[in-house]
Design a binder for these strands. Structure first.
Lengths: 279, 279
DNA sequence: TTTAATTGTCTACATTATAATACAACATGA
DNA sequence: TCATGTTGTATTATAATGTAGACAATTAAA
């Protein structure tokens, strides 16, 4: 049973990061001393120091010998905030350069989950592709798509790497009509972590979208993973008329806000690259 | 720099769990032998066995001596899928029993992030509360709310533990009008992990909602953490008219589907409780 | 200046994780 | 029955991680 626990240094790191982000600690505040932190968390000072070193490397804190440890001034690297409907359009509208790398492309039997969602007969063949979308030189989404073979054959591998999948589907005569999507959270698997340049086991936003044509047949199964530090789903809600109903309705928000802070981005970006290389 | 890495056993565990969930492995399939897995992942067989032991404890696989390791039949404990607008209403509509525990309640200076979102003067006092919502006996959301002091004083601590916050706000004359919410993913901090009965460092869905009154003043800042195995945000989208626009519009879905499988829930629930107790 | 508190550094040791190997117990199919 | 491959168990060795304590360097305040 032992062996799958998190190292203590990482636990302390997590707790402190949480306190800095949401725990009511403001920029410039003084953190408790290493000795005190060691006591609070029931670990040795050396372990606390490892956690603090990681936080310092990410630019969240400043440590000054003799003085103490302080919360860094511009610690919040705000993610790009975009509407839930169409990520790509929003990014382009923000004037960002996007690029795609095709990591895998094959035809195979449909996994049970996909066959179920697309309403295929079990084992029907599908086209599977894995792509990484790169925005402004940094990877930020890891896309796994499954498309029924009969539709997949209407476009080629290089086309998939250069054009949006939805456009390819429409070109082949499919009427893209309706979709269902779910948002969840997962830990980064080694493959996804490598592609997105984050640590294995870090948190990722998971989005699963199933697209149907006019007749209700599934035409695309998309499983997307996003870096939460680079992206967040945002929606505006308005209270629905009936009083006491206590319900919200989604509101079309004209354009998404670009939320990435200029100054801090480069710094955090570099720190992250180091982290990725260290193995 | 060392000390915050994930143990190899946990990395292998993550990979295998990912493959079981989304990697095209179906129920009943045979996993590669421990020796083979050790080779694939460049770790020793002992390490692979630790990862497998964890998966077995969670009911995802069956191991039979002499025979092999198999994917458990009913492994997919589907989360409760609900609409993004109003979680609580959906749960009640599903006929589920919900309960609330109040973990913290205090008045304090507003953290920078909250003050910013609610458009308060920095350091203005706010009421902070931490609640855990329990559905069908299992904790599934961890809510941290900040409300401006002038509004917070209109209700009492026990009221907060028994009535929805939005109802309390309206009772005090606040016109709840508009909200913005963002969905992201975070790792479970020790506090959240303990409250939600999951492992430290597991992935959680993070939702931040800021509610405004008719005059655009912030009246509530909600930070919610959900267990992804118990919950997922779902939305239905329809293609917007203009052809080539390639945009989606949210669709009101009348009622959310209850997605929890009866049989598997108890089993997985028990496994999880064990996990929570082991420390 | 003095004093106390802080971070930085170092050493020695204990505990835990991982690796490599061998062998037993069991299942399966030839 | 037998050969083969599997999981279960044990042993040993090495590496990684955590602990404890002491001391130096620096800061800030008394």
């Amino acid at each position: 049973m032992v062996g799958v626990e998190l190292p203590k240094a990482r636990q302390v790191y997590l707790v402190l990061r949480e306190r800095i982000a949401n725990g009511g600690l403001n920029a410039g505040d003084t953190l408790p001393g290493e000795q005190a932190l060691a006591g609070e968390h029931n670990v040795s000072r050396v372990t606390v120091r490892r956690a603090l070193a990681e936080l310092e490397r990410e630019g969240l804190i400043d440590r000054r010998r003799g003085a103490g440890t302080f919360i860094a001034l511009q610690n919040a690297v705000k993610p790009v905030v975009a509407d839930l409907a169409d990520v790509l359009s929003n990014l382009i509208a923000m004037g960002r350069s996007t690029d795609v790398r095709l990591l895998a492309f094959s035809y195979q039997d449909a996994p049970a989950m996909v066959a179920d969602a697309l309403r295929l007969v079990k084992g029907e063949r599908v086209q599977r592709s894995v792509r990484v979308r790169i925005v402004d030189g940094e990877p930020f989404s890891y896309l796994t798509t499954h498309v029924p073979e009969r539709i997949g054959v209407t476009y080629t591998e290089p086309e998939l790497a250069s054009k949006p999948l939805l456009a390819l589907l429409e070109r082949s005569g499919v009427s893209v009509d309706r979709a269902t999507q779910e948002i969840s959270a997962v830990l980064a698997s080694p493959e996804a972590a490598a592609a997105l340049n984050v640590d294995i086991g870090s948190a990722l936003i998971a989005l699963t979208r199933v697209v149907y044509d006019g007749k209700g047949r599934g035409v695309e199964h998309l499983h997307a993973l996003y870096r939460p530090d680079r992206y967040a789903f945002r929606m505006d809600l308005a209270r629905t008329g009936r009083n006491g109903g206590r319900r919200w309705s989604p509101v079309e928000n004209g354009h998404a806000e670009a939320g990435t802070t200029k100054g801090s981005e480069t710094q955090a970006g570099n720190a992250r690259e180091e982290r990725g290389k260290r193995r």
